[in-house]
Computed example of a mutant assay.
Amino acid sequence: MAFPLTVLLAAYEDLIEKELESEFSSCFDEYDDDSLFSLFHLTRPCLMFVADTMRARLQGVQPNTSHPHLSADALVMVTLNYYAHGISSASLLTKLGLTHTHCPAIIKAKSTVASNIEAVCGIPNVLGILASPHFRVRVSPYDKEDYGTFFSPLGYTAVVSQIICDSDGNILNVEKCEVGSTPEQEMWASSTKGKEIEKDMYGPYWLIGDLLGYCKYILTPVPDPSNESENRFNEAHAKIQGIMWATLSSLMRRFKVLLQLGFAKESSLDQKSNIIKACCVLHNIAKKFSVPSLPVGSEPVYPGKQHSGTLEVSDEALTARQALINRVFSALQMEKILK
């Protein structure tokens, strides 16, 4: 029997309240609600739910040998603080008796993602795989003001969202969706992740992408390869890019709502974005619990729209890509690897 959503939510809230009523004292108790939100961008009930879950899962696990004094709550605090700000807050580290030099031993997300991607395709220092898939929506053709903006070059009305995943198909980032006529390059330029990477906040890392004209941080394939080095690079690029499209295909098979997001107006984009983001979170949870994928069907996954005008390709991007190809995919380098 299916329970109404309100009953399920009530049960969930009751579970959280019982967790919070426990007499367990944690290092979160040393902060007021405003300080917690400033440090983690999450509320106290949400933080306690995460901490309680992690505490239960870490029972019986050997403590961190580098920092055996750190409790499960402290590890959660450092990680969530980093996720919230992109850098660990000095005040929190001081409180826990740590410095910024300790953080790489606790948070290894970037290097782990990069090493896993390099193991798959040979391209080093890649933070993730970038794509901007279209999701169908209904827009009345009589609503001429909205219809034109939602109409994609693929022949139907849609919204488009920017998504980044890793080599295992885990979704790392989802940006807000835009109307289907929005070029992928414009989405990148206005996205939070794009602005962060353009400001060099992540260091010497790349993203793998499909379309030309982004920036030096986006590795795109060579459009007309002229030698074996460029062919090898394109093969590696296609191999890792294929993981993104397989991930999106799996996402859309599991969550059919993404095949048709219902009626849309520009004023309802946030609602469509929330559905896409929720499905991405559930996708990651399903992978975490090794839930099997649904059988492959006929669900199409379409890439984002190329810029309609003449697009100026960044010289910096071309130079950076060529330097990578020469360094990693040249015949001499490949001989060294094979030896």
Rank of each mutant, 00 (worst) to 15 (best):
V313Y: 07
K95W: 00
Y156L: 03
L259W: 07
V222C: 10
S191I: 11
L130E: 02
V160H: 04
G297I: 09
G194S: 09
P223W: 07
I243T: 11
E335I: 05
K108R: 15
C27V: 01
A114N: 05
Q162A: 07
W188D: 02
Q185W: 08
Q322H: 14
N227L: 00
K110P: 04
P124Y: 07
S293C: 11
R57I: 11
E17P: 03
S35T: 12
K277H: 13
R254P: 06
N234V: 13
V50T: 02
G209P: 00
S273L: 10
I164H: 04
N170V: 07
S267F: 00
S267Y: 00
L294F: 15
E178G: 03
L39K: 10
A2Y: 10
V313Q: 01
E335F: 01
V113T: 11
K193V: 14
V328D: 07
A74R: 05
V78M: 12
G194W: 02
K195A: 11
A323C: 13
W188V: 05
G304E: 01
E235A: 12
V137G: 08
A331D: 15
G213Q: 05
F37K: 13
A131D: 15
P204G: 14
M244K: 02
L127T: 12
W188A: 00
D168C: 09
L338K: 04
C279G: 11
S140R: 00
A90N: 11
T79P: 04
P68F: 12
L258N: 03
H237T: 03
E186K: 15
S191A: 13
I337K: 14
M48F: 01
F28L: 15
Q62L: 14
N274L: 14
S268D: 15
R57W: 01
I325T: 08
F28G: 01
N227W: 01
C121G: 01
S115C: 09
L282H: 09
L130H: 15
Q185A: 06
H41K: 11
N125C: 07
P300R: 07
K95D: 07
